[in-house]
């Protein structure tokens, strides 16, 4: 069973690496879009999937990252990709400031507060807050990224850049999942009170998860800004946050492979329905319901973690 899974993963990687050979530009762009949303989904997964917090305002952090990149790169000429850590940091600090007072709110109350957050950020962007966001026009003329001296502007170049970032994200979050921090989060999600009782500092862990997710979304903002070369507030609406949310829950919250699959379904599916013209979104909505009904835990729910306890027993004998 385990081997079968690795074969699929390997096939998937080979598919991505060779995609430019047989996919045209449009499908490469669809893959790029899916890749961006996959990273966003994975970053939200830290908060929703592991932390168990109902967070529907992730686009706020994505927007802050994208705008940080756009503003600094257009006015100071700093190469775009260098701004990735800074964008992440800005988003992370913002998350830290706003999340502190609200992190203790229960499920649905937190949900509406995060929705409020993304709306406040969007309204601030539209109203040209501090005179730097360009209002409804947004910011244009963001330079293309360069990597090792190569200018990245073709679809297949972005494919490798974006999916490279997906790979880094997967690696990092996979390690995180199996770390002390990741285990604490899962515990916290399963039973907050028991976790608190066992000495897990719940508020601190929740806050850390929130800030980490925001940091990561801010970094994706850089990629988005570099890819589009123009950003405007309508790209960061509440509906965007809803999309990330659907990616995580539909794919299988708490499972890395599931979230990536979720990105394919939520972002890819409407592209397949293009031929249906006006019926496109109707079919998409219906597909969402059906997938959810038939796979009520998400399409790829996380497997029950089996911790190898044998090493704690003398001689490894079964009890």
């Amino acid at each position: 069973m385990k081997e079968k899974r690795y074969i699929v993963y390997a096939l998937f990687v080979v598919f991505l690496l060779t995609a430019p050979l047989y996919l045209n530009r449009y499908w490469l762009e669809v893959l790029n879009s899916v890749g961006l949303y996959a990273i966003l989904g994975l970053s939200l997964n830290i908060i929703v999937g592991y932390g168990g917090m109902f967070h529907m305002g992730h686009a706020a952090f994505y927007a802050i990252g994208a705008y940080t990149t756009a503003i600094i790169s257009t006015s100071y000429g700093v190469p775009v990709l260098w701004l990735m850590p800074l964008s992440g940091l800005t988003a992370g600090v913002f998350a830290l400031v706003v999340a502190r007072p609200i992190i203790h709110l229960r499920g649905d109350y937190l949900l509406i507060v995060t929705i409020g957050l993304v709306e406040i950020v969007r309204i601030a962007l539209i109203n040209n807050v501090f005179g730097i966001t360009g209002g409804a026009n947004g910011i244009f003329g963001i330079p293309r990224p360069t990597l090792f001296g190569y200018k990245i502007f073709k679809s297949h170049q972005f494919l490798y850049l974006i999916w490279g970032c997906v790979a880094v994200t997967v690696f990092f979050f996979y390690r995180l999942e199996n770390s002390r921090f990741g285990r604490a989060l899962v515990y916290l999600k399963e039973d907050e009170i028991a976790a608190e009782g066992s000495g897990v500092h719940t508020a601190r862990y929740k806050l850390a998860a929130f800030v980490l997710g925001a940091f990561w979304a801010g970094m994706v903002g850089t990629l988005f800004a570099a890819k589009m070369t123009i950003i405007s507030p309508e790209s960061f609406s509440f509906w965007e946050s809803v999309l990330y949310f659907m990616i995580v829950i539909l794919g299988g919250s708490g499972n890395i492979a599931g979230v990536i699959l979720g990105a394919f379904l939520v972002i890819g599916l409407p592209e397949f329905f293009r031929g249906l013209e006006n019926y496109r979104l109707l079919m998409f909505g219906a597909a969402m319901i059906f997938m959810m009904i038939f796979r009520t835990q998400g399409i790829l729910p996380p497997r029950q973690k089996v911790f190898d306890v044998s090493r704690f027993r003398k001689g490894g004998e079964p009890i």
Binding site: V48, S253, L281, F284, G285, I289, M292, I293, T296, Q297
Partner: peptide, 28 residues
């Protein structure tokens, strides 16, 4: 149709089903 099959599953699954229903209604 959309919520009953999800009574026993995690709460957020039903939320996604509700969002799907919202898209369906709007476009219908």
């Amino acid at each position: 149709i959309a919520y009953k099959p999800l009574r026993q599953s995690p709460r957020l699954s039903a939320v996604v089903s509700a969002l799907g229903a919202s898209i369906v209604f709007q476009n219908a």
